[in-house]
């Protein structure tokens, strides 16, 4: 059986193929990293560490951006 990564992305369960870094995940999702912030298990992942932060099964990720608000 092939290894898989079981993640929770913005509250939704997702199965992805390892190995995967935060930078790799954003790339796979088609998200421009300079427009978002990423939280992994309630800790912010600094943008400078996206490429070297490797994801593990069970990780909870929040990917957020700015939207209109008052």
């Amino acid at each position: 059986m092939r290894d898989t990564l079981e993640l929770t992305l913005n509250g939704e369960p997702q199965t992805l193929e390892p190995p995967l870094s935060v930078a790799g995940l954003l790339g796979r999702l088609g998200i421009e990293s300079r427009k978002v912030a990423v939280e992994r298990n309630l800790e912010i992942v600094p943008r400078s560490l996206y490429a070297e932060t490797w994801l593990a099964t069970g990780d909870q990720l929040e990917i957020v951006h700015f939207i209109g608000g008052g």
Partner: peptide, 14 residues
């Protein structure tokens, strides 16, 4: 200008 912070819509990231 004020802005809000919300989850990116992963179904339509573009």
């Amino acid at each position: 200008v004020t802005v809000a912070v919300r989850r990116v819509n992963l179904a339509d990231p573009k």
